[in-house]
Design a protein around this nucleic acid. Sequence first.
DNA 1: CACTGTGAACCCGTTCACAGCA
DNA 2: TGCTGTGAACGGGTTCACAGTG
Lengths: 212, 212
Amino acid sequence: MLEKKKIPKSAISRLSLYLREVTRLGKDGKDKVSSIELGDLTGLTDAQVRKDFSYFGQFGISGAGYDIPKLKDALREILGKDKLWPIVLVGCGNIGSALLRYPGFKNQGFIIKEAFDIDQKKIGRRYGDVVVKDIEDIRDIERDESIEIAIIAVPADSAQNVADMLIRYDARCILNFAPVILKVNNGVTVSNMDLSTELENFSFILTSLKNQ
Amino acid sequence: MLEKKKIPKSAISRLSLYLREVTRLGKDGKDKVSSIELGDLTGLTDAQVRKDFSYFGQFGISGAGYDIPKLKDALREILGKDKLWPIVLVGCGNIGSALLRYPGFKNQGFIIKEAFDIDQKKIGRRYGDVVVKDIEDIRDIERDESIEIAIIAVPADSAQNVADMLIRYDARCILNFAPVILKVNNGVTVSNMDLSTELENFSFILTSLKNQ
DNA sequence: CACTGTGAACCCGTTCACAGCA
DNA sequence: TGCTGTGAACGGGTTCACAGTG
């Protein structure tokens, strides 16, 4: 599976959207979909839809659109959704515990396998099958069942330390809820879920509207 | 405040980062910062930093960098952070209640003023000063204290309904945690916080690494 | 005929490079 | 001299437009 063309990373995010909608359509009993319909559902142009698919191969039938089950399988394979990905969570405060309680993860192909915190009051709490452990115990994680995906939901001032620790234990992808830019060496992917940045976009927009 | 140049919307998100770092530096007692330092702190190039600022005016001193208090004030003004923005939240499940408990909002200039749910078990719960109300009561919101910023944290299948309702009550900016593309007329800004899209980016990356 | 797949054109954000200023 | 501010060059992602196919 060598990719010749360079694939815009934004295309990958869109594949997620397509998969979501295609799955929904499949549940509704539809079996064919065109790039125009899929564009409408995702708020994108039909050309964008076709171009995105073209990075990965040819899934469509000329004149007839895409076969939904086939397209769904293709997207699932591309996105690596044919396995259950284990996730390590660090920080079990507001956000962390909400994630632990979130039932949707599992049907999405992700599962929080381990949860850590530094706060003695939180350590030992049970969320489903997961018991919150002391952050120190992270060294006991089986090396062969490597971390790969980690979520950081600790306060800003300890996020970098946590990231360094996680990377030492082979984390390759980090979803970061802390409002800091994490410094990581390349080979590690960080994705920031930053509430205040999003809200500040809003206050900017609203302020500009008023001042114009 | 007419903007001649077109400002990339990504520049606004970066302004948030700059403000965050500049605020931090200010607290540390620093009073000057260069575009290079600010770039290091935010993971951006110095040219990017200067270009972003240039969209909004000239804040720097040639040869000496930027005056931190002055820059901070300028960024705060641009981002509209000199007032407390009221937010309406709909959906008080896992994510919604985590947001209600999150103390950081207020010092960031945002405050959840109203919270709604459809579930009788959740209605009436109190989080600080906020009591969860029945979604039906949304019509009682004072029209003059308009909604403007809203957060949707309801399940996917009711998110569009909620969005329509919020927009009817003058919401202009919607932060959407539900995994659906909301259809809104223009003039309304939607920003999606989509956990599964982020995680699927990760599973794509990890899968590609293994297959290469 | 309807719709896919894709090279080419276009557009827009980022980077470069340097003139200008303290 | 050191760093800002910015027009110009660059690059890459999106859109266009149409050839190709069932």
